[in-house]
Computed example of a mutant assay.
Amino acid sequence: MDQDGALPVQVPSAVRAALLAPLVDHHCRGVRRDELDRARFETLITAAGTPAPPGTTHFDTPLGTAIRRWCAPVLGLDPHAPPAVYLARRAELGPAEANGRLLRAAGVVAFLVDGGPDGGRDGELLTAAEMGRLGGAAADEVVRLEPIEEDLAKEGPTAVGYPRALAERLADRASRAVALKSVAACRHGLDLDPARPGRGTVIAAAGRRLARPGEPLTDPVLLRHLLWTAVDVARERGLPLQVHTGYADPHADLTRSDPALLTGFLRALRPTGVPAILLHCHPFHRQAAYLAGVLPHVYVDVGLGPARAATGSAAILGELLELAPYHKLMFSSGCHGAAETSHLGALCFRRGLARVLAARLGEGEWSTADAARVAHMLGSGNARRVYRL
Rank of each mutant, 00 (worst) to 15 (best):
7 L>A: 13
8 P>N: 07
11 V>S: 10
17 A>M: 07
20 L>C: 09
20 L>M: 12
21 A>F: 01
23 L>D: 11
27 H>S: 06
28 C>E: 06
28 C>V: 07
36 L>P: 05
36 L>N: 07
39 A>V: 07
39 A>I: 02
40 R>L: 08
43 T>W: 04
45 I>V: 13
45 I>G: 03
47 A>E: 15
49 G>V: 12
54 P>M: 06
60 D>V: 03
61 T>V: 10
65 T>H: 14
66 A>N: 00
68 R>S: 13
74 V>R: 05
77 L>D: 03
80 H>G: 03
82 P>E: 13
84 A>E: 15
89 R>F: 09
92 E>W: 00
100 G>D: 11
102 L>N: 01
107 G>D: 14
108 V>E: 00
109 V>M: 11
110 A>C: 12
110 A>E: 13
114 D>G: 10
117 P>T: 15
117 P>V: 13
118 D>V: 09
118 D>Q: 14
122 D>K: 12
122 D>G: 11
125 L>D: 14
129 A>D: 15
133 R>E: 15
136 G>W: 00
138 A>S: 15
141 E>I: 07
143 V>H: 08
146 E>P: 05
156 G>E: 15
157 P>H: 04
158 T>E: 13
163 P>Y: 10
167 A>M: 06
174 A>S: 02
174 A>T: 04
175 S>T: 11
175 S>W: 01
176 R>I: 12
182 S>Q: 10
183 V>T: 12
185 A>C: 13
186 C>N: 14
187 R>G: 05
189 G>V: 12
192 L>F: 08
193 D>H: 06
198 G>K: 14
200 G>R: 09
201 T>I: 04
204 A>K: 13
206 A>D: 06
213 P>N: 06
215 E>I: 01
218 T>H: 06
220 P>M: 09
221 V>S: 15
221 V>K: 01
222 L>R: 11
230 A>H: 07
232 D>C: 07
234 A>S: 10
235 R>G: 02
236 E>L: 07
236 E>R: 10
238 G>H: 02
240 P>G: 14
246 G>A: 13
251 H>G: 15
253 D>L: 09
258 D>W: 00
259 P>Y: 13
262 L>E: 05
263 T>P: 00
269 L>R: 09
270 R>K: 11
274 V>M: 03
275 P>W: 09
281 C>V: 09
282 H>W: 14
283 P>Q: 04
284 F>K: 09
287 Q>R: 13
288 A>Q: 02
290 Y>H: 14
293 G>R: 05
297 H>W: 08
297 H>M: 12
305 G>F: 14
305 G>T: 13
308 R>D: 09
309 A>D: 04
310 A>P: 00
310 A>V: 05
313 S>W: 05
315 A>S: 07
315 A>G: 04
320 L>C: 02
320 L>G: 01
325 P>R: 15
326 Y>L: 13
327 H>C: 07
329 L>K: 06
329 L>A: 11
329 L>S: 08
331 F>R: 09
334 G>V: 02
338 A>H: 08
339 A>P: 13
343 H>S: 05
345 G>Y: 05
347 L>N: 01
349 F>K: 04
355 R>G: 13
357 L>Q: 06
358 A>C: 08
361 L>Q: 01
363 E>Y: 05
365 E>K: 04
365 E>Q: 11
366 W>Q: 08
368 T>N: 10
369 A>G: 06
373 R>K: 10
376 H>R: 15
378 L>W: 04
380 S>I: 01
389 L>F: 08
